[in-house]
Each structure stands twice: as C-alpha cells, then as structure tokens.
Amino acid sequence: MDNLPLLTIGITLLTCVLAVIGVHVYSSGKAQREALVQRMSHTGQIPAVGRRRRFGGIDRRLRKTGIGRRIERKIAVTGLDLTPGEYFVYVVAGLLGLYFIIGAIFATFFGVLAALAGIWGGNAFLNWQRTKRTEAFINQLPELTRVLANATQAGLAMRTALVMASEELDNPAGEELRRVADQLAVGHTLDDALGELADRLPSRELVVLVTTLVLSSRAGGQVVTSLRNLTETLEERKETRREVKTVLSQIQVTALAVPMIGLGFLLLINNMTPGALDKMTGATMGQVGTIVAFALYAVGYLAIRRMSRIQV
C-alpha cells in the first residue's frame, strides 16, 4: 500500500498510452476503409457511399405519395443533396419557425400568413435552385463546346467526347454530362440522353447545342466548325446576359424593397402603439384588409419582376 500513488500514476500512464494507440488504430483503419470504398466505387463493384440520410421512415412513406414523387422530381433537377423526407421535415420546421417568430414580432394572424407564404416559398426555393443550376450550366456552355470541338477535331466520337467533357468540367456541367454518359453506356441513344438533359435544364442555349449535336450525329457534316461558331456565339450571349443582369439589378432590389418597407411600417406602428396589430387583426375587417394589402404587395412585386424580365 506504500506504493499506491506510484501504482496509480503507472496505471494512468498505461491507460493514456493505450488510448493513444487505440485512436491511432481507429483513424488508420477508418482511412483505409474510406480509401477501399472509394477505389471500389470507382471500379463499379460497390455503389458510391454518401452521407447518412436522416428521417428514413418519413422519406419512405412520403415517396409512396403523389406529392412525395413530385418533390423527388423537383429535387432531382436542382442538384441538392436532399431526400424528399429531409426536405419535407425542413420545410415543416421552417413553417413552424415562421409562425412563432412572425407571430411574436407582429401578431398571431401575421404568423399564420407567414406560414402560408412559407408553403409557397418552399416550392419557390426549389424553382430558384433549378434556375440557379441552369444559369451555372449555361455559363459553362462555351467551355463545354470548346472541349467537344477539340475532342471531335482529334478524331474522337461524340460519345467519347461527352465522356471526356464530363471528366474535365466542374459541376454542374460535369455531373450532368456524367449522367448523360451513364445513359449512353446502358444503351440509350444520343438523342434521348441529350433530350433528357435539355428537359432537366431548360434553356435556349442548351437547346441549340443539343440540336446541333443531334443533327450532326444524324446527318454528319462539319461538327468542329459548327461547335467553333457556337462557342463564339455562346461567349457573346454570356457577356450580354451579364450586362443585362447588371442593368436590371436595381429594379430587382426595388421589387423586394417595396414590400419590406410595408412590413417596416407595420413594425413601427406596433412599437409606437403596443398591441395595435393584435387589435387590428382581431376583427374580421382588419383581417380582410391585411390579406388584401399583402395581396397587392405581392401583385406589385410580381409585376415589377415581370416587367424587368428580359429574355436574352
């Protein structure tokens, strides 16, 4: 018992050494497993492993419904790493957050309106993500046509040129072209694979490119010359779109600022006279007037966005 402190120190040091060894063995084993999975996924022996999915039960039930299938199709064209179940849970959580936050700041009736607007906002978010992905893909089209022109000029077939472009380009073009290459590998025709690409990312630039590639594959002709000319045209359109977007940015900010000013006035009134919004929305006429006012703000916002939308 006289050597008890020394024995305690020795056991503690031994435990620390074993802990360090255990952490080192675990980290090295995990790294080796990830390297093995990545190597085998590239060879196609096992599917690629992604992140762990949440809300699996909700996702399975939601996929069996019509709304779940629609959500799945919308998410598929946005490039988001989400399942329908995760998206549904996040939207519901956001609606509850809007209801409580807006209801606490303004009034309970405004919380209900915010939750209803959030339902539209969830769908608008997916549409915005699709538009954003389409815009990013359009910006990569000049580079894509340049790669295809160089590959075909080197004597490669169009299928091989598409595979090469999918490996060289960044996302979203690389990911979309890999999907096209996978479809071609399992027997889809070039027309069908490129047609599905144009359906996923609708734009006039992509339709022109797809039409050029399809006609060249059917009737032959000078593919390299067509792609070179298309590259120059797409570069010019890219610059024009950037200039138009810069000119219209002030109008878009105005469209968003107008309803924000209205909400600011409501918040100012409620701070000057506490409970004024509760009294206003407590009567039927007040609720109807609030709904009409917000509807007019929405119409004004959409009208300004519509008038400032220029197709290039």
Rank of each mutant, 00 (worst) to 15 (best):
Phe100Val: 09
Val180Asn: 07
Leu263Met: 12
Ala181Met: 12
Arg133His: 06
Cys16Arg: 09
Ile58Trp: 01
Met280Thr: 13
Phe265Leu: 15
Asn229Val: 00
Phe125Gly: 14
Ile75Gln: 02
Leu194Tyr: 03
Val292Arg: 09
Asp199Pro: 00
Val253Glu: 02
Ile71Ser: 00
Arg228Asp: 03
Lys279Leu: 10
Ala157Lys: 15
Val25Pro: 08
Val207Asn: 10
Ala181Cys: 14
Thr131Pro: 04
Gly221Asp: 06
Leu266Gln: 04
Ala193Glu: 01
Ser308Cys: 13
Leu267Ser: 07
Met1Asp: 10
Thr281His: 12
Thr152Val: 07
Ala104Phe: 11
Gly29Lys: 00
Ser216Met: 04
Leu113Cys: 04
Leu296Asn: 06
Asn139Gly: 13
Phe137Arg: 02
Arg204Lys: 10
Ile9Asn: 06
Ile67Val: 13
Met164His: 15
Arg54Ala: 08
Met1Asn: 11
Thr273Trp: 04
Leu126Val: 13
Ser249Phe: 11
Met164Val: 12
Glu34Lys: 15
Ala293Asp: 06
Val208Ala: 05
Leu213Asn: 00
Gly66Gln: 09
Ile102Glu: 04
Leu169Thr: 05
Thr108Met: 07
Leu98Ala: 05
Ala93Arg: 03
Ala115Leu: 08
Tyr87Phe: 06
Thr83Ala: 03
Gly264Thr: 04
Ser216Leu: 05
Arg178Tyr: 03
Thr233Tyr: 01
Glu167Thr: 14
His42Ile: 09
Ala193Pro: 00
